[in-house]
Design a protein around this nucleic acid. Sequence first.
DNA 1: AAGAGGATGAACT
DNA 2: GTTCATCCTCTTG
Length: 205
Amino acid sequence: MNHPFLTPDFYQSEDVVQIAKDLLGKYLVTEIDGHVAAGKIVETEAYRGPDDKACHAWNNRLTDRTRVMYEAGGVAYVYLCYGIHHLFNVVTGPQGMAHAVLIRAIEPTHNLEVMQFRRDMTVIKPRLTAGPGAMSQALGIRTALNGVSLMDSASPIRIEDRGDRIAESEILSGPRVGVESAGECALWPWRFVVKGSKWVSAFRK
DNA sequence: AAGAGGATGAACT
DNA sequence: GTTCATCCTCTTG
């Protein structure tokens, strides 16, 4: 069965907040170490380069790490957090615009066994793929995959549109997680979750 | 050259 | 609610 990939148009829009909402309901598919695994995106956060203090590329900061965020939308930005967790983001916007959407949680739909094995869990529960670090571990995403295309059928990470539509009324928004030091930007309601999903991560204090 | 701290998760109490 | 694992990136000197 073949599913359409999202187009460059979708990723290269300048409205990263809208893209973060539009990514809900899309399917994140990985093919890593010979295993295909997939799930439906149920939680995202928008990060907007120049004016968003919580973004690594705030004020157009350009370092080795942030460089990939300036590429044209449709590639992966994967970085290591707290020395342990591999966090997966979708780079968006036209080339030169450092926008990204952090994918925080999926509803696992394909090859739960592999995810369970990677997470070393004996039973399936939301913790399997809720939270950006956990989700990446379950899907096998690592920093080595920084910069790969999400629109190429040969890519180890891609995002597919299988026709699921999440209505605006089904989306909950709130402040982003873990960015309280970002001043007023910390209050921007740029975290989006699918209402009622049990597969989303918890707020932390 | 060195040190601080981070878009977290898990295992505690 | 609290602690801490663990290491890369960035800033400063």
